[in-house]
Simulated scan of single mutants.
Amino acid sequence: MAAEFEARLRAASLRVTEPRLAVLAALRDHPHVDTDTVLALVRADHPAVSRQAVYDVLRALTDARLVRRIRPAGTTARYESRVADNHHHAVCRRCGAITDVDCIAGTSPCLTASDDHGFAVDEAEVVYWGTCPDCATKDPLEVTEGRR
């Protein structure tokens, strides 16, 4: 997998560095995580990587469109490496869990605006809100983690 990450970085005209490879690996294995979680995951294998380095890597990877930053209303920013398609997200109102939802109609962008006002639309963002299966089986007072 490292070879694939190296190729993606080079194709985006980015230098191949250990922090960049570590962030890509963390996001591959743990989609929809916040910056602090990315930092913890990277430091598990690379303890010397600084917080600022992770911030810089996330910004560079997002700018290069190798990583997608999502921020459903009322939540902290999360990152994912699934960028090759236009998919949406379902967010649990109780615990904050986020999962991918494939487009239900057509190709990217899977939603066509009734009036695009001249915009060249290249992405549509839909967030489905509800209760995840884990939280649905718990007492509502039990679940507070993830709510902000």
Rank of each mutant, 00 (worst) to 15 (best):
P47F: 00
R148W: 12
V91K: 11
D116L: 04
R51M: 13
R8S: 15
L21T: 03
V121R: 07
T112E: 15
R148P: 09
A124L: 04
V54L: 04
T17R: 08
P72W: 04
R59Q: 14
D56V: 07
A64N: 06
V91Y: 13
P47N: 07
E123C: 10
V57R: 00
L39Y: 00
R43F: 05
V23G: 00
A40D: 07
P31D: 07
P31E: 08
C92H: 05
A7H: 12
E6I: 07
R93F: 11
E80I: 14
E125W: 07
R28K: 15
Y55P: 00
V54Y: 01
V16C: 11
C135Q: 07
E123H: 14
A84G: 15
P19K: 08
A11E: 14
R147I: 07
V126H: 06
V143R: 05
R69W: 07
K138Y: 14
T62I: 12
R43H: 03
V121C: 00
A22D: 06
L111I: 15
N86P: 04
A2Y: 09
P72D: 03
A77N: 02
P133M: 03
A44W: 00
W129C: 02
A48I: 01
P133G: 04
V91D: 12
L21M: 10
V83F: 09
E123P: 01
A97K: 13
V127Q: 05
E4I: 14
P19V: 05
L66Q: 03
I104A: 14
A25M: 03
A53V: 10
S108I: 09
V49E: 00
E123V: 15
A84T: 10
V38T: 02
A120V: 13
C110P: 05
D36S: 13
R147S: 12
V23D: 00
R147L: 11
D102V: 10
H46S: 06
C135S: 10
L39S: 01
P140Y: 02
A60V: 02
A73E: 13
T107V: 11
L41D: 05
A48K: 08
I70E: 13
S13E: 11
A90P: 06
H117M: 11
S50Q: 10
A25F: 04
A12D: 08
V42W: 00
R59K: 15
L21E: 08
G106F: 05
V101D: 02
A12Y: 01
D36W: 01
T62M: 09
E4A: 15
R65V: 14
I104Y: 12
C103T: 12
L14H: 05
P19C: 04
G96K: 04
F5E: 14
D139I: 00
H88Y: 11
D122C: 03
W129G: 03
T112V: 15
G146M: 13
G96F: 10
V143H: 05
R28Y: 12
P109I: 03
D116P: 11
D56M: 08
L21P: 01
V49N: 05
V49A: 06
A90Q: 09
D115V: 09
D139K: 05
V49P: 02
R147H: 15
N86F: 03
S13Q: 13
P19M: 08
Y128Q: 12
A105N: 15
V54M: 03
R71T: 11
T37P: 02
V38N: 01
R93I: 09
C132G: 05
E123I: 07
D85M: 12
A53S: 11
L41I: 03
V143M: 04
T131M: 01
R20T: 04
Q52T: 13
Y55W: 10
L14C: 06
T37R: 14
A11Q: 14
